[in-house]
């Protein structure tokens, strides 16, 4: 494993820890999109099916279990915890899952490497992950008051796939020189979706101002 990959995974893990910390410490999920969090549960469930089939490493299995467990835990807090769920921005989190899940699934049926159950679900998870942040970004645009933890959570979540892009370039030149269009393009689109957010996040950080996205 190279440094980019490890940095990407750690950034991803840190983003989730930060979100759980926000929820547990402040007893609030204000500004967090339940739609996005539910999409991540779908992403992890469809991608990590091979947990029971192929063993890569202890690191790999542990991280998969952590991502699955924490994503379900976050959704549970937002839907079922009697204090936290009352802080959820129900009226503003209006994006429909269906419009993301269905096209991604159809695309995975059409564009994939092998027509097998696991491979189709793996491809679907990459397509869905690339757009899963959209409900969260829409919610942030509507929010007049984005707290630091929420802003940093989204920043780290976006940075993680960006670091994976470097990891893929590195692996291309050091390992087997194979082109992997599906993860590469999905990852590129995923990172590009954050571009605007990165710009405003870094600007607010440099100017020590509160983060605000233009509507």
């Amino acid at each position: 494993m190279n440094a980019f990959r490890l940095a990407g995974d750690m950034t991803h893990l840190l983003s989730i820890i930060l979100l759980l910390l926000k929820i547990r410490a402040t007893k609030s999920c204000a500004g967090i999109s339940l739609k996005t969090q539910e999409l991540y549960v779908i992403v992890f469930m469809s991608r990590y099916l091979d947990l029971f089939r192929t063993y890569y490493s202890l690191y790999n299995s542990l991280m998969k279990i952590i991502f699955l467990g924490t994503s379900m835990c976050i959704v549970w807090y937002m839907r079922s915890h009697k204090v936290v769920r009352q802080t959820y921005n129900n009226d503003e989190d209006t994006f429909r899952h269906f419009f993301l899940v269905l096209p991604c699934f159809v695309l995975a049926l059409l564009v994939h490497r092998n027509f097998t159950f696991i491979e189709i679900l793996w491809t679907f998870s990459l397509y869905l992950e690339s757009v899963a942040i959209l409900p969260q970004l829409v919610l942030l645009q509507k929010s007049s008051n984005i707290d630091n933890l929420t802003g940093t959570y989204v920043f780290l979540l976006g940075a993680y796939r960006g670091l994976y892009l470097f990891n893929w370039v590195y692996r291309f030149f050091t390992e087997n020189h194979r082109v992997r269009w599906i993860p590469w393009l999905s990852g590129l689109i995923q990172t590009a979706i954050y571009t605007d957010f990165f710009y405003y996040y870094i600007r607010s950080w440099k100017n020590r101002e509160k983060l605000k996205l233009p509507a």
Partner: peptide
């Protein structure tokens, strides 16, 4: 073969 390069990622 199909399990190299990207299937071992998260």
């Amino acid at each position: 073969e199909s399990h190299s390069s990207s299937h071992d990622e998260l």
